[in-house]
Structures are given as C-alpha cells and as structure tokens.
Design a protein around this nucleic acid. Structure first.
Length: 214
DNA sequence: CTCCCGATAT
DNA sequence: ATATCAGGAG
C-alpha cells in the first residue's frame, strides 16, 4: 500500500473516532489563545488550563501583561515548566504586540513567528484555531512520533516531516489531521507504551506490523 | 545542537 | 528513577 492509500484508510477511522475536535486549551480572547499555546510547550494542556484559569482572570490583552511585573507572571505560570523562558517571551511578545499590532494578532505565518515565543508550530495552531487558516501541518511531538511509527516518515526533523506529510495529506485535512494525531497519540499511541493491541489503526501501522513478526 | 524546567505516569 | 508532556531561542 502506498502512503496515500494507507492515509485514506487511517483518516476515516480517526475521523469517526474523534469527529470535529476542538482545542483542549481554554481561552476567551485570541490573544489568550496565543499565550496558552506558548505555555503548552513541553506541557500537557490540562496543566495549561489550570494555570490560565487564574492568569486569564487578569490577562485578556497584551496591555495586561505589560502592567504585570515579570515575577508575578512567573509565579502564575511556574507549574507549566520552562517558566522563566516562557515569562520572558510572553513579556517581550506583549511589547511587540503593542508596538506593531495593538491587540490584533497578525494573520500571516511570517509575522506571527516573529513574535517572541511563537514558532512555526504555535503559529499554525493559532491560525488554524482562530481563523481556520492552514498554511502548513502542525508537527508537534505527537505528530512526529505517530508519523514515524505508522511509517509515513523516517525523520525527527519537524520541517522534513511536515513536507513529507503534505505530499499525501489533502490540504483540507491538514489541520484536523494533526489534531487526530495528537488525540490518538494521547489515547492509544502513547510515547512510552503504545496500546497496539487495542489500536484502531494497527492494521495500517508499520510499528505494530513489525512487532507482530517478532 | 543545547538549554530551559515543573508535574505526572510508569 | 526516568521518560514524557500541543517547543522555542541562542
């Protein structure tokens, strides 16, 4: 089976399982979503939501971050890990927002990634979530792991993985596909101990098929 | 490539 | 004890 054929088998199964997924991150304003995604680096979104529940009571726009001192911000977000980097980036990010965009988040990927703390992954999530804009495929740790296990790619480089996936994943599915990878990654294709024996897509997964031979 | 870094599951 | 969690900057 070609990659495209396998994708056509896998995608409907995941679609049937997860439907039309909403982001697990909680937010009210677009700016809050960007902050939440920055916080979600190497951290579960459940943890991010615990932190933002308090933080977003006082932070809704970039000006709210400007008014908050660094130490206070660090205290709010500490439990998400990397808190000093994240706090510093969020402060710098707010300053650039106020200087260039006020509180209107730019809708171009090239401009978004210039904001401190925002990389390609974060930018794609923000654009997709807020305005359904798909400039690429979100490649996070889950997409990376599942793509390699299924046998779609053989690479640890997010940009190479993204290009490879874009060859056979239809553009209209780019955004939901990464959502499905993330959800399925948390549910069955867990990093440490994948539950291949109860996995819905095991018949199309290289990792499972290879293990059966042993 | 390394560093950042707390919380959680195993 | 240790790997892992919706990564980004230098």
């Amino acid at each position: 089976m070609t990659k495209k054929e396998r994708f056509k088998k896998i995608f409907p199964i995941l679609k049937d399982k997860f439907g039309n997924p909403k982001a697990a991150l909680e937010f009210e304003t677009p700016y809050q979503l960007m902050v939440a995604v920055i916080l979600s680096a190497q951290c579960t979104d459940a943890r991010v939501n615990i932190v933002t529940k308090e933080l977003f009571k006082v932070v809704k726009y970039p000006k709210d971050i400007r008014e908050m001192d660094l130490e206070t911000l660090e205290k709010y977000i500490k439990s998400t890990g990397f808190y000093r980097n994240k706090a510093k980036n969020i402060k710098l990010n707010a300053e650039m927002m106020l200087e260039k965009y006020d509180d209107k988040i730019p809708k171009e990927l090239e401009k978004l990634v210039e904001l401190p703390g925002v990389g390609r992954k974060t930018a794609n999530v923000v654009l997709g979530e807020l305005w359904n804009i798909r400039e690429g495929i979100v490649v996070d740790t889950h997409v990376k792991r599942l793509s390699n296990r299924i046998g779609f790619v053989k690479s640890e480089n997010p940009e190479i993985i993204e290009k490879e996936l874009m060859k056979f994943v239809p553009k209209k599915d780019w955004f939901v596909y990464s959502h499905y990878m993330i959800l399925h990654g948390r549910d069955k294709c867990i990093a440490r101990s994948p539950k291949c024996n109860i996995c819905e897509i095991r018949d199309y997964c290289k990792y499972n098929l290879d293990n059966l031979k042993k």
